[in-house]
Each structure stands twice: as C-alpha cells, then as structure tokens.
C-alpha cells in the first residue's frame, strides 16, 4: 500500500506561485473575484505564505499537509472528511454540511469554504474534478483524480503503477523543481530519500499531526541565514 507524500525544498522555492495557478486550473478552484478576495474569501488549495524576519523573507508553499493523524477528521460530524488507506485525506463534497468544524480544527488552515456560489459547471473546467456547490468545505487532495486516472491506465495496460506516473499539478509545474512527490513508504523513492535529508523539518512538529508534506530548509534546520 502506497503512502503518498510530498517534499518541498524551501531553498529552491522562488515564490513564483506557479504551483498555486496550476492547482487552481487543475482542480477547478473558483476565482472568487476581487470583492470577495478583499473580504478574505480567496480559495487557494496551495497557498504560498510569506515569512518575513529581519534576516530574510521566505516563501512557504502550503498545500494540505495530508496528516497521518489529522485533527480535521476527528471533528467532522458526518464522515465528510476521512483519511484513505493510502494516506490521502479526502473531502466528500456531497456529504459535507458546511459546519466548518474541520476548518476551525486544522492547525495549518488548509481548508477553504465556499462562502457563496462562486462558479457553475462550465466548459473549460477539468472534467475529472467535481465543481463544488456553495456551503461546502474543500481542500487540496494531492490531485487524487490523477492517481485514479493513472491507476486505471496502468490496469488497462496490465502493469503496475510506475514511480513518477502520478504527480499532482503543483509538483509537475514547479519551474525550480522544488516540489517532489511520491510514495513515502518506498524506501528508495526520491521523496523518501529527501524526507531523510538533514535539512528536513515538518510544520507543527510538536502538534502530533504527522504531516506528510516535509519541508527542506538550510536556514530552518541549521540556522544559517
């Protein structure tokens, strides 16, 4: 059973936000409009945060960290969010009642809400991803639809899923190749190797969420500016 994870190299990230745009295009994330954005309702499954300190400014791309012990699924009252056996924290739009408890519980604020009806189904959207109605919560799914397509293709061709065949849109797009993605349980895979790097750290390490997005940073780990 695979355990899908991601490694983001902060020393390579330029803050260009190509990952953000790729994610929005791939997952039919609605553009909420200028007025709603001014009111703080932007939906951005992958969001690039800016950390400013006296020494430097650093960019932190933050997808859903796909925790292995997610605080969000503990509190969902209707099984609308759950962790599947391959480690992806899924969101079922058809079940969600919009109570936003998971949003309040997520320590990384990785969940977003459809405050209004931001879009209808229209040509030009990705047909593999459902268009969300108003009143439900959504978040990054590691482009789970791409996994399903890759698996089906592999099954049709009677072979196993090859490493690198399933990659989320953000990892595929990053121009500085800062995002690596793969099976963390495969000891020899690139992500597993990078996750063991001396530069590796996790956000909110002490919270016990066991996130599967690992960050690499010289400055964070070795305090070198």
């Amino acid at each position: 059973m695979a355990l899908w994870g991601m490694v983001i190299d902060l020393d390579r990230c330029t803050g260009c936000q190509a990952c953000v745009m790729a994610c929005k295009a791939e997952n039919n994330v609605a553009a909420v409009g200028a007025k709603e954005a001014a009111r703080g309702r932007t939906i951005s499954w992958m969001q690039v945060l800016t950390e400013e300190s006296e020494e430097r400014t650093r960019f932190l791309p933050r997808p859903c960290l796909q925790c292995d012990d997610p605080p969000c699924i503990r509190v969902c009252p209707v099984y609308a969010t759950y962790r599947n056996p391959e480690g992806i924290v899924a969101q079922i739009y058809a079940r969600c009642i919009g109570c936003r408890f998971c949003m309040a519980a997520c320590p990384y604020n990785a969940k977003y809400f459809n405050w209004l009806r931001y879009q209808r189904e229209a040509p030009g959207q990705n047909p593999d991803v459902s268009v969300r109605s108003k009143g439900v919560v959504e978040k990054c799914t590691f482009c789970h639809h791409r996994l399903q397509k890759a698996r089906e293709r592999a099954r049709a061709e009677r072979r196993d899923l090859a490493p690198g065949e399933y990659v989320p849109a953000c990892a595929e797009t990053c121009p500085s190749r800062a995002i690596a993605f793969g099976d963390l349980s495969d000891h020899g895979s690139e992500v597993a190797r990078l996750a063991r790097s001396p530069r590796a750290f996790r956000l909110g390490e002490g919270l016990g969420t066991k996130p599967k997005v690992i960050y690499l940073s010289e400055t964070e780990v070795h305090r070198r500016a």
Binding site: R41, N109, Y112, F113, W115, L116, R117, K134
Partner: peptide, 10 residues
C-alpha cells in the same frame, strides 16, 4: 446566497 453574506472569512 450562502454564508458569504455574513462577515465570516478565512
């Protein structure tokens, strides 16, 4: 219209 008519936000 949805909960967007309130002051709630991210």
């Amino acid at each position: 219209h949805g909960l967007g008519v309130t002051g709630l936000q991210q």
